[in-house]
Amino acid sequence: MKKPVSLTQEYIKGLWEINPIFKQILGMCPTLAVTVSAINGLAMGLATTFVLVFSSVIISSIRKIVPSQVRIATYILIISTFVTIVDLVMKAKFPELSKALGPFIPLIVVNCIILGRAEAFASRNNVLRSFLDALGNGSGFLIALLVLGSIREMLGTRTIFGVQVLPNQFTPWMVMILPAGAFITLGLLLGFANAFTKWQEQKNKKSVLVR
């Protein structure tokens, strides 16, 4: 029997401990494709978080009535409903952003993070915990995309959120807003994340020994 996890921990763990990008390595396709700018990363992160939170809550609340044979079908139906809502709202209210993100908004349907959380968490836990878990994972995804988008936009066009942060003397690295830049940046970030985790573990080990 597992120890009960505190409610705060249910949210916090998504930010780093089981961060969808840095730890679970899920949802790589939108991560690599849309993060040419900070605003794109933010919008994609928000859209995914919205879908994740609402579908997790609904799935969790009906988890006892849905027969296990058709659970995946039901989940996908619920997820795609929210994705379509996001898509329509963005097209109606933020046409520029919707154009920039292109097919990646409808593709949230097949984002493994969402079905992953539905299967692994929401279908087994109560509504409050599912809500916090989804919010945590969504925030983790959003932070990762925002970091990736900001780095790429800064080096590729000198700006972050359209505001110039690097001097004119800096020649933009075009590669950063090309697909190659996405792979290089993400690879380096994952490397640093792993190095940090290792360093943390070693520190913990040492402190245990001292005790």
């Binding site: 009535i65 079908a73 039901t74 795609s80 409903t81 329509l88 097209k91 109606a92 209210k93 046409p95």
Partner: peptide
């Protein structure tokens, strides 16, 4: 049981989408 759950989910989903679309279509 299976049929009714799926039907119900699909119906609710369709109704929600229809109303959102009603609002969004003229704007788009």
């Amino acid at each position: 049981h299976i049929i009714s759950v799926l039907t119900l989910t699909a119906t609710i989903s369709a109704l929600t989408l229809a109303s959102v679309n009603n609002w969004a279509k003229p704007l788009i």
